[in-house]
Design a protein around this nucleic acid. Sequence first.
DNA 1: TATAATAATTAGGTATACTAACTATTAGTT
DNA 2: AACTAATAGTTAGTATACCTAATTATTATA
Lengths: 154, 154
Amino acid sequence: MHQDLVFDLVETLEGLRRYRRWFRDESFPIRNNEMMLLMFLDRNLNDDCLGIRPSELGEILRLKRPTITSLVNSLENQGYVERISDDHDRRVVLVRLTNKGDNLMDQVQQSFIRQIRQTMEYIGEEDTRELIRIIGKVRSFLEVKAQNNDGGSW
Amino acid sequence: MHQDLVFDLVETLEGLRRYRRWFRDESFPIRNNEMMLLMFLDRNLNDDCLGIRPSELGEILRLKRPTITSLVNSLENQGYVERISDDHDRRVVLVRLTNKGDNLMDQVQQSFIRQIRQTMEYIGEEDTRELIRIIGKVRSFLEVKAQNNDGGSW
DNA sequence: TATAATAATTAGGTATACTAACTATTAGTT
DNA sequence: AACTAATAGTTAGTATACCTAATTATTATA
């Protein structure tokens, strides 16, 4: 494959790497990675479960557990999430949104998510799906490769 | 547009954000951002010019000048680039690869670039071009938007 | 000549995520 | 039952990748 195309792809990926700042509302009270944690918490929380385990959050967000701990600490200090301990296994902690956190997510809907939606409307549904499909393909290839190389830790 | 699709896109973008580490060779002697600087330096260097100005590098890599300064300092200390001063304007500094830096770029070709190429071959030329096209569309939309919001500095 | 603009740097700080080592608890083995 | 393994989470310390504000040196302009 052509050298130029390879380089174009690198440039493309580089340009996308810091996408969060494009959508970020500067006045937002929490950091981007904290917002992501809340979003995934909000989304992956079913009615029947009390909260999500830090280790699960780490898998969803592809972050190591100590990283999750410090994010949850920060969010807990600010009052957006709370930790409750699991009765069945006292090693386990469950993280869930507080009301304050839930309200913040409504704000996220109106700023971050709205901006993403706007962008998607510009590029169109078809291209959006294509983008998701192709990147998914890239990721699945790379994840398999990573597993073969080093046992899957990343 | 559907909430789910928006969320899928976020997830997709999140997964791509740290793409560099997928291709990274752990034994490589320089950091990822340093490697990027060298790659763009290598690529944007014509035969007729002595080097590239830090300010130009900043535009290409979308980094602020102080960031470039510290990258160039580090690379210069390690012997991969050198600074030469412009005769026409003594405020200006030109950065160029040393032989050592040039040799390192050959290594980059054989590791980082080779891995990217491999991935591209897996996903196929057509999808690669689609990916580049769609992300380009996203970026152009967002860059215009960013300019409208805050005068274009980022 | 004085002032403004430009190029790069210095100093200091923030955000993000890591590894290694530790504590507490549970599961499995003898 | 006691001992050892494994597992969940945390703490402490570190690396990386950026940034802003202020400073220095030089050139352009009024």
